[in-house]
Design a protein around this nucleic acid. Structure first.
Lengths: 217, 217
DNA sequence: AAAATAATCTAATCGCCATTAGATTATCGA
DNA sequence: TCGATAATCTAATGGCGATTAGATTATTTT
């Protein structure tokens, strides 16, 4: 059967973490396979043992990051808390998540475009390449859908809060975009040794957005 | 003396606008000189008549975008309006600016990193290259300073509003980052034929942020 | 019209980078 | 210990893309 991986060999997850760091620093297009390989002390060729190609590697980084944050936020949505407390916790979880791994956070923000313009398959592609390509596209579309679902979690709670009178009447779509834009941007400017911790920043942001949303009185 | 440019020849500004559009669509690293040249019906080589190299072209795009938005916002800061009215107008001007030219807006957000890792000059560089390089670096640093000054306009008005009791006590730095993150993100999701106009979106966002900031009562 | 300069082109060059081919080495299960 | 498979390596390949060299064409000034 499958052999148990040796302790000193590099595994998929090591590569994903290192790749996120490099991708944040240089951006997808400017990052070479050699850069990523170097970050885990491999040669570029060795990466192809773990990932089909550069696009697949990027997608894997993004998937891992998205899964992680969704797993943190979904339970809050389905809890028995009040809508405003839900939203507060969701904002904190998201912002703290971004500050705890700015690499993945920033990659999620900046490198998604690179997924969009994957070059079409050449005419003369083998059967196997065709299949691999379609698998990739399907997987990518699943990722985008997953990403929309993430945003929908926020919309859901805001809608709920408006319905039960906790929040004022407002345009849910715009408010959600405003919220997520602010969150995403944290990954750009946050510095681990800065004046404030991720938790402090998260609390302040949650405070502001709840003031913006809560009903008067 | 300098010849007056012919009407049918492509000028600097045509190139900047076209370049911003291409850069938004593909990102700096993925954009080739040929792409940009094609957008104004030139060959790649011809671009070098107008710009020293690709980095200089990017910098010129960013400078133009930043100048434009600063020119819109600076007068508001120095007007006689109340702090909250100033902030409302600044938010609207910024967001509308972003929606009116998403190309420049998104480029400002996404491509600045490319300016940061400009490769250092090779050892064997000519006198002229040395000078050109240092000019470029100086110009880039001026751009970054200019960008900080833009952010400072918002901080200034918020501080002022807190001082005169118009706004609640809050962390000015964090609030400003929150605000600008939300604004910048608009360039990512806004679509000209979407449900709402840039002006409508701007008004809603300004409304939310002013609720977040205003003193109670 | 002649000289000067601006704008553009065609045709290299040169290097880098994703990807592949084909070993080689390490680890595990039997 | 043997065979299988995983993990890694070295050494191409093939193409693309920024940049340059050197014409060529267009426009303006005198």
């Amino acid at each position: 059967m499958a052999r148990k991986p040796a302790d000193q060999s590099v595994n998929r997850e090591d590569i994903l973490l290192a790749a996120a760091e490099v991708l944040q620093r240089k951006g997808f297009e400017a990052t070479t396979m050699k850069d990523i390989a170097g970050a885990v002390k491999l040669t570029a060729a060795s990466l192809y043992h773990h990932f089909r190609n550069k696009d697949a590697l990027l997608l894997a980084v993004l998937e891992a990051g998205l899964d992680h944050i969704i797993n943190q936020i979904e339970p809050i949505v389905h809890s028995a808390l009040s809508s405003d407390e839900k939203l507060r916790q969701m904002i904190c979880a998201h912002v703290v998540g971004v500050t705890h791994n700015t690499a993945v956070g920033a990659t999620m923000v900046f490198e998604i475009r690179s997924l969009m313009d994957v070059k079409p398959l050449s005419e003369t592609a083998s059967e196997a390449d065709q299949r691999a390509y379609h698998d990739f596209i399907a997987r990518r579309n699943r990722f985008f859908a997953h990403r929309d679902a993430f945003e929908e979690l926020f919309r859901f709670v805001i809608r709920e809060g408006i319905a039960n009178g906790c929040f004022r009447q407002t345009d849910v779509g715009i408010f959600t975009k405003t919220l997520l834009g602010a969150h995403n941007w944290v990954g750009v400017w946050y510095r681990p040794n800065g004046r404030l911790s991720g938790e402090e920043i998260a609390a302040m942001m949650a405070d502001s957005f709840l003031r913006a949303l809560r009903n008067e009185g």
